[in-house]
Design a binder for these strands. Structure first.
Lengths: 213, 213
DNA sequence: CTTCCAAGAAATTTCAAAATTTTTGCGATT
DNA sequence: AATCGCAAAAATTTTGAAATTTCTTGGAAG
């Protein structure tokens, strides 16, 4: 996720052993566990590779994430209680504070881990009342893959980017707290659509204009 | 998946070593790979367990499968060509033949692997034109988990059961070939709804009556 | 009666080397 | 010029045992 290895790069336990100060078998063990999360590719009898990265795959991951998050949000809005609202507000407050600081300090690189963790916490809290551990765990996996795919993509995470996503996160929060399912799903789509390629069939739920109004 | 181990049962490499005629480390390696598919639970420093099984979890797995299959079918119907139609017909023909034989011969247990493979092939072919490897791989994982959850549930896989699912598979096929997205999604819901618990929030797409008509 | 702690037992993880499998390089054949 | 086969090299997998961590048990303290 830190682009230490290029997309599709071979990961050989015998070589990495030195870098990480442990035996080749331990590396293998760890790589198998990373494969479970989808960060590493594994093929029997032919070892490990860092996940490949193509425009098609990035679109694929983004679209899948949209579907999971929209469904998780729907179920949470239907089933979440006051406790969920409180936790969602809290995680949003934290995220917003960090994003504001990033814009002020211009220290984008320093905060990257802090921001990434807070962003995950917000999106995870959003779907946390869905009462589906399968959906929740799959989302964690795809979120990590999503972030991994974006690392390789040298986009300008400039001030404008953060100004935009502050608004987007706010829209998601507002719709969720207002128990507006369609509006929340539209806000999720708007938040993530920059990662979709055009000339592809889009996700089911993407209506935006009239719903949020 | 053959209920060799009970739900939640501890899986200790040192013990299984004897059963499978290999070293404990090889067992560990294999269990890590089964954990990737979701058939085995793994927790750092505390080993492996066969997946737990509760009514809530079975509902969860079934609902998630419905969502994936409905979305996969939608994308396939939109994007699949003649080749997809041909492969879908072929896999359905094979599945139907096996199901008919099962009803005739009453040999339910003999055909179980054959049937299970053919059933997976049909459902996988249905979503095979979705152009999303992430969706396809997640579906494979959840299908296997679904089957695993059902093994522990001693239900009557009697003649009536197979008579019913022959009709259900036919409905899915017909709607797919007719490029009827909503109808196909409804047929998928009807096929799998027996695995959902009541008193739970249901999946998004479950309308059935008027759509298929 | 519960809680805490330590020692022993059991389980998990790591290691280094051997065995197996795949990949590579090169010459012969079509 | 391309394909095939074979030996060497490289990589992956398996092994058995050592090191580490967790779990259990029984007794002392609160």
């Amino acid at each position: 996720m830190t682009a230490t290895f290029g997309p599709g790069e071979k990961l050989k336990p015998a070589e990495l052993q030195g870098e990480y100060g442990c035996s080749a078998n331990t590396i293998r063990d760890v790589l198998l566990r990373l494969a479970k999360v989808g960060l590493v590719e594994f093929e029997m009898q032919r070892g490990f590779r860092a996940k490949h990265s193509t425009p098609e795959h990035r679109h694929d991951v983004a679209q899948f994430r949209i579907m999971l998050e929209q469904e998780g949000a729907r179920l949470s809005i239907l089933q979440g209680g006051l406790d969920w609202e409180a936790r969602l507000s809290a995680s949003h407050h934290k995220l917003r504070h960090i994003e504001t600081q990033i814009i002020r300090d211009q220290q984008h690189d320093t905060y990257v881990t802090l921001w990434s963790d807070a962003e995950y916490e917000f999106h995870d809290t959003l779907i946390s009342a869905c009462k589906s551990s399968v959906l929740r765990e799959t989302f964690e996996s795809i979120y990590v893959q999503f972030r991994q795919q974006m690392v390789n993509l040298e986009r300008d995470f400039g001030t404008d980017y953060f100004k935009a996503i502050i608004v987007e996160h706010q829209s998601i929060l507002d719709a969720a707290l207002a128990r507006n399912i369609a509006g929340c799903q539209a806000a999720i789509y708007d938040h993530l659509k920059r990662n979709l390629s055009s000339n592809h069939v889009g996700p089911t739920l993407q209506r935006t204009a009239e719903i949020t109004a």
